[in-house]
Design a binder for these strands. Structure first.
Lengths: 336, 336
DNA sequence: CTGTTAGCGCTTTCAG
DNA sequence: CTGAAAGCGCTAACAG
């Protein structure tokens, strides 16, 4: 049976108050008393109940982290960074996987509050929940930080990549490399995809060739294969592009595979740019040219921002913008 | 300010007990009273404090999940499975990332107990901690399930892949395919590597060619590149093998890349078998022949086993063994 | 059907 | 330096 502070007090012949003081070392205790108590603690193998402590302090030292999909190659790195920073400060994290479901996200937000978490980090929040104003309300009740996701005119704490600038850089690079026919690949409903699509259209402003392909679910293991199938069919059409700009690396991998399937060489016959710089992007051949999202930094900044919000009641809304960088590898090529 | 059950009771003009009963719906309450209470709850936007409830029930509805490295491609799938099963039953999970450090693992085990978790799942526990007898002691205090890892003569709950049989199948396949010179690649200190090494030696029993290469840290993002460097040098030696059996897919990917670097075609000039069947193994070209670990099933089984242990005080020690399967793809070839 | 009382395990005034 | 008492927010006998 687990021993409590009472057992220790009894055994040491002191009050529970004194035991508490020895543990927390926050009030003077006579040396001999301390020794008595410490020995009792050791004998009983006593460890304080953190939940009880939390009840009093109204602090759980727990943070909720909500991710759309933990099996996506993108998120584990972010989660790892968050965990590393928060653990240093004594926090544990609840991992919440929504499977990209809007309702699950809300469900988790509620449950996390019931569980008295000290703060919440939401990675890639669902646009619908963002627009509904739900999060603006909640962020007044509890420290809340978002990583990426829809943030236009939303009065919440954000750590975001300037995906727009990353997308512009990628598109300009393709154009500078001589590509006239660039196709765009996106998934369904996500602010990030919408944003890149706008960039695609703007940069291509006066171009005749425009081709937007929505491959549906864009953030799953299966996205690679699914993209491959769609693009394979697409590549057999008459007016084939010379380059693809993809909303993420999974899609880009799918395109690479599609090219291989029908005998197109990358980058000789086809240039491909991804987005995210997930691990796999440098494990495949050819190594993927892509836009780095600073996944680890994203997590570090979000964790620190949250910490600031927890420690300091009245911190202003913060917005940290990281600049993603184009990483030129081997899946793109200048053409004449 | 957050409202408590007392606020609700006052507003509704009843006792806190009644409010509790309405919430939990576990005792008869008069209809009108219920309505009064429910309206007060709504007005105050009241949500019960789960921590307080946990204090009474001595149940936190929280499970600790300890992983060596969340950024390893292997683990997110296991974690996802665990989360899915446990969430159905109302549990949340604390994600604990040890970075392969033995001390961190122990630190987490202690902290998790302080936080009154109802159970713990340890994925790939550190062999040292397993052998020290620490875990056998702890598993008497709290429901504990291990996924893989050292388990010889350890009296704890396990869900494991029969890695031995998987390794045997892989080795036999290579031999059956005509390979006489097979090299073995492993990382440092891990029961799983040791086990496969034994299989390697046994199956090769009377063979002249034996080559064991330890590439150090075997479970990190960097393992691929690191393996590549080592193997690249190795491949320039005189007596080159015709096939590699690798302890995991990351190493196998490294070997594939090494071959490419020095102009060896896979599988024409070199056959390669991995282990784990991580996502990336089917995203690369050539697709990797590997041994599937049933990562999701591993998680599902562990979660269910833990649940059984939590619900039922005196369940016997359980050991569930899954059989991994060789998946033949394109990185291996028969030779004459 | 409902309220009173005690208490989960710990911390924190407040006296002494 | 130490202890008694109150209480964090909630639930569970026990009466009524």
């Amino acid at each position: 049976m687990k021993s409590t502070i009472q057992d220790v007090a009894k055994k040491a012949g002191v009050s529970t108050t004194t035991v508490s003081r020895v543990m927390n070392n926050n009030y003077p205790v006579k040396k001999e008393t301390r020794i008595k108590v410490e020995s009792a603690i050791k004998k009983l193998n006593f460890r304080p109940n953190i939940l009880a402590r939390g009840l009093i302090h109204k602090k759980s030292n727990t943070i909720g982290v909500i991710v759309p999909s933990i099996t996506n190659l993108f998120f584990p790195t972010v989660v790892k960074a968050i965990e590393a920073i928060l653990r240093e400060q004594g926090y544990f994290i609840y991992l919440c996987n929504t499977d990209n479901k809007e309702d699950e996200e809300i469900g988790y937000i509620n449950s996390l509050q019931d569980r008295q978490v000290d703060g919440i980090i939401v990675i890639d929040p669902q646009t619908k929940n963002m627009k509904s104003g739900l999060y603006e309300k909640i962020s007044k009740e509890i420290p809340l930080v978002f990583i990426n996701g829809y943030n236009k005119d939303v009065n919440c704490n954000f750590v975001i990549n300037d995906e727009e600038s990353g997308a512009i850089e990628a598109m300009r690079y393709l154009i500078k490399s001589g590509h006239k026919k660039i196709a765009f690949i996106r998934g369904q409903k996500s602010y990030s995809y919408d944003l890149k699509e706008i960039v695609y259209k703007n940069v291509l402003n006066d171009s005749v060739y425009k081709k937007i392909i929505n491959i549906g679910e864009g953030n799953k293991d299966s996205t690679v294969d699914h993209t491959m199938e769609i693009i394979q069919r697409f590549l057999l059409t008459e007016n084939r592009p010379s380059a693809f700009f993809c909303c993420n690396d999974l899609m880009a991998l799918g395109v690479i595979n599609a090219c291989k399937k029908i005998g197109l060489d990358v980058p000789e016959d086809m240039s491909i740019i991804g987005f995210d710089n997930i691990i796999t992007s440098r494990l495949v051949e050819p190594k993927l040219t892509t836009v780095d999202q600073n996944m680890y930094d994203l997590g570090v900044n979000a964790a620190k921002m949250l910490l600031k919000n927890i420690e300091n009641e009245n911190v202003d809304i913060q917005r940290k913008i990281l600049t993603p960088q184009l990483i030129i590898r081997q899946s793109t090529k200048k053409i004449s």
